[in-house]
Design a protein around this nucleic acid. Structure first.
Lengths: 363, 363
DNA sequence: CTGAAAGCGCTAACAT
DNA sequence: ATGTTAGCGCTTTCAG
């Protein structure tokens, strides 16, 4: 606690100059063995811990990367995540209601884990910043001042703020984005993912009346919709209904589903833009007494953990979430090495995951 | 990217001194409105972002807190967690095998989330460091040099390394610890938790032959065992067998259970030291064709998410994991304000969570 | 191979 | 209310 020892103390104790101390820590083999041992011993004895601030100042680099972990569930559109994963556990009568599924790790959580694991693997320091409802800007600026590069989630940061930061340090964004075209990106193959799951519905289940449904608008979701329509078109079909996307929120998605139920003419399948949308759809259908997949099939996109646990379990397209996080780190580090190269884009494959909600192995 | 603007640039552009710029950012209301506006405008125009390194150096504080997120699952004793939560998703025949449950958030994950949320809420920067199998020491030292205070998990850091760091910055440890008595701690009421679940078995289910089982040794687990024995004693009973704790690893736990099955005389209930142990027990019993809770009841301790999802779902004692993370942050900040106060200890309550594995609502 | 010295960008007295 | 002036602890030429 007591204002730790500095290079000066170590230098004095080891009987060398501060330059030698510094040098010993960065190029251990460039100093005479005896000197090195003396320095290391002194450092050890004193409990010396190099100050990252001082080093950062001197080197012009902090040596840390940042992740701005905007939490979608703190966003009004999705409602608040419960007080902690798996927190609320009603006593004996507890079942595993679909409404509890928000307690499992989400898209952002898994990507974050990937960022963390990759940083740790490389011995890279990682600053994890979080959206603070109010002063998002201030928080972001603070983070920006602390790191050499920043990873962000789409739409978690206003474009102007982003531009200001990107002028100073490299920024990488996960997911597609029609804005911020100058940033590095990590994206997935939405096209083939939607095509795979849609064709599964068409071919394996012989369905013909499909509809696309999604809540929040995004570039990814836009592309998924387009891919959906193209797939249907290629099969000589058209969408069962005008695509209900973007509805705007979970609430609106539920509303659309309720209307569908009341109307009495459900499509064969509802292809959702994301797993979260699909979970809402599943909830709503269950509440309306509609059987999935018997009366209507439902599919998602993302492959979050909750989809494995719901009943019926969710057929979906899995994104390599952890890998996406790792790739962000990779991209950041690459750009730090080579600031001038044109914006890069790591495009990752996805995988069709067939479970129950499409009608396969309908228990 | 181009070596961002500094206070000097802003000062020049605003026609003031650098001190005024600095002052404007820290005490906005202490400067004349006109000056403030000029400074802010200049900063805005220049895209000024304060350097945390410089500030840290000057103030003697980095303004960030650290979490050393040792991952137990990277530890050989527990085996490696799959490539990402919910990653491995075997096709159509997939059930939700118990072996998949390691994919859900664990004890450490939930505590980490608590630390994050609390830091974000307070606008506190948070550095999340990770165990790197090899150079744990180096990583730790690096983190220590970057933060004003550090939160750690028990036994994730060798005591000597810890001592060195604790000499420089405050360190808070979650869970009980007979070592490191000089650190601040966040603990839970193991005694009443074990007592509650044991008495539930005794009273509600009328069981008499109970045994305690646990893998890894720890102070918490030690205390749980003691509480277990005391509870039995108070009821005029004794342990059905010599307590099998600490077995040492998941493997050894499984082995003990297999022996029990072969021996043919299972106790009425196996009270596990942790949920993780209980999941292993559940797995092993299932593999041996033993029915839970019919043939034997099983209970856990922790309340991790996976316990809700297994079948039979796990009766357990839930720790307020998120709150524990939040309390660590609180403790760190308190100590920074008041370095001299004696070691503090936040002792949190736990809650009995009755599900199926104890025999309640046996489907 | 090692020492001397000049900053890195900002804060905090102390002046004014 | 604002300007002056020392550093904070480390890195990095440049000499020796």
């Amino acid at each position: 606690m007591a204002k730790g020892p500095t290079v000066y103390h170590v230098a004095e104790r080891a009987g060398v100059s501060i330059a030698t101390v510094s040098f010993t820590f960065r190029q251990p083999d460039k100093v005479k063995a005896s000197t090195r041992d003396a320095v290391l011993a002194a450092a050890e004895a004193l409990g010396y811990v190099p100050s990252a601030s001082a080093r950062g100042l001197a080197r012009g680099r902090t040596g840390a990367l940042g992740l701005f972990a905007y939490d979608y569930l703190l966003d009004p559109a999705h409602g608040r995540r419960e007080e902690g994963i798996a927190a609320s556990v009603p006593a004996p009568t507890e079942g595993l209601g679909n409404e509890d599924l928000r307690l499992f790790p989400l898209y952002v959580d898994e990507v974050q884990r990937g960022v963390e694991l990759e940083c740790w693997r490389r011995g890279q320091a990682l600053l994890v910043g979080g959206g603070n409802p109010e002063n998002n800007e201030a928080v972001l600026s603070d983070i920006a001042g602390r790191v050499d590069g920043l990873a962000i989630f789409p739409r978690s940061v206003p474009s102007e703020a982003l531009a200001r930061i990107a002028r100073r340090i490299p920024v990488v964004e996960v997911s597609e984005s029609d804005l911020n075209a100058d940033l590095d990106h990590v994206t997935v193959d939405n096209e083939s993912g939607i095509r795979a799951i849609t064709e599964h519905l068409l071919t394996v289940h012989g369905m013909t009346r499909l509809m696309f449904l999604g809540g929040m608008p995004s570039s990814d979701n836009d592309h998924r919709l387009q891919a959906f329509l193209r797939t249907l078109h290629d099969a000589g079909l058209s969408s069962a209904r005008g695509p209900n996307y973007p509805c705007g929120s979970d609430e609106r998605v539920a509303e659309v589903v309720r209307l569908l139920c009341q109307g009495g003419n459900l499509p064969d399948a509802i292809v959702c833009a994301t797993d979260q949308d699909a979970l809402v759809v599943l909830d709503t259908l269950a509440a309306a007494g509609v059987n999935v997949p018997k009366d209507v099939a439902v599919t998602g996109f993302d492959g979050i953990a909750a989809g494995r646990v719901v009943r019926p379990s969710l057929s979906t397209v899995r994104q390599p979430l952890e890998q996406m996080g790792r790739s962000m780190v990779q991209l950041l580090l690459d750009r730090l090495d080579n600031p001038e190269k044109p914006p890069a884009n790591v495009h990752l494959p996805v995988r069709l995951v067939v479970r129950e909600s499409c009608g396969c192995q309908a228990a």
